[in-house]
Amino acid sequence: MARRLSPVGLDFVQSAPVRLVFSREVAAPPDAVYRALADDVTGWPQWFTAVTLCRPTGGGTGREVRLKGGTRFQESILAAEGPERYAYRIDETNAPGLRALVEEWRLSPAGTGTRVQWTFAVDGPAPLRVALKLGRAGLGRAFRDAVTALDKRIGSSKA
């Protein structure tokens, strides 16, 4: 059964009880990375292996996302500021324990490529916060693998 989460805003990225921040440099330029994140929403399963479905909703103001294992999200886009920032809030989910969750992708030039920074901002009960902190390495690995696959995908689409 889906549950509604708190309708937090972009400021939650800085104030969340749990903030996990990861970054990686890729060869693709910021506008190409931004287009893959914000414009090619249905392409997410091609590079983020945890994602099995990603599609726009509400005329592009939201997204429906499904993950391996059956987790589902209904999201609202909070920022689509190309090519620097893409952020969304989870509005509804079947994942237990979450009270609020915002993900923010920040992109900045790094030589001829891009520095990609992903912030995973979460609130939930103490056991969930502890579990997320303990699972930081796994989330970091998922991020690195996804961004590496995204970079390869962008590079191969140029060929």
Rank of each mutant, 00 (worst) to 15 (best):
R99N: 07
R35I: 08
A32T: 07
I154C: 02
D145C: 04
V130L: 13
T71H: 04
D40Y: 03
R89V: 06
V116C: 02
G43A: 15
V33F: 05
V26P: 00
A27Y: 04
F73I: 05
R85P: 00
A79V: 04
D91T: 06
A50R: 12
E104K: 06
S108R: 14
E25F: 05
R141N: 10
T119W: 02
D40L: 15
R4M: 12
A2H: 13
V116Y: 01
R89K: 05
S6A: 15
V18C: 12
W44N: 05
G70Y: 01
K68I: 09
D145H: 09
G59R: 07
K68R: 15
I90V: 15
V41F: 05
S108H: 07
I77E: 02
P7G: 11
V51Y: 04
V33T: 03
L20Q: 07
F143L: 12
R3A: 06
G82P: 05
W118G: 11
V65P: 02
R3I: 09
K133N: 14
S76D: 14
R19C: 05
P29E: 06
A126W: 11
A36G: 02
I154D: 00
E25S: 14
T49W: 10
E81W: 06
V18Q: 09
L78T: 04
P125V: 10
R72H: 14
I90F: 00
E81D: 12
R66H: 11
P96I: 14
A146P: 05
P127Q: 10
E64L: 14
G138R: 02
I77N: 00
L98Q: 00
R136K: 15
P17S: 09
G58P: 11
F73W: 08
R144E: 10
Q74D: 12
Q74W: 07
L98D: 00
D151H: 06
A159T: 10
A50L: 15
G111C: 09
N94V: 11
Q117V: 14
T112Q: 13
A50V: 11
I154Q: 01
L67M: 14
G140K: 10
I90R: 00
W44E: 06
V147W: 01
V21N: 07
K152D: 10
E103H: 06
V8E: 03
F143I: 11
A2T: 06
V122L: 02
P30E: 03
P30R: 06
V116H: 00
G58A: 11
S156H: 12
V33Q: 02
P125N: 13
V130C: 10
S76F: 01
G82F: 03
P29Y: 04
G97M: 01
R55A: 14
Q74R: 14
A149G: 03
A146E: 05
W44H: 13
L10M: 08
I90C: 01
G124I: 04
V122H: 02
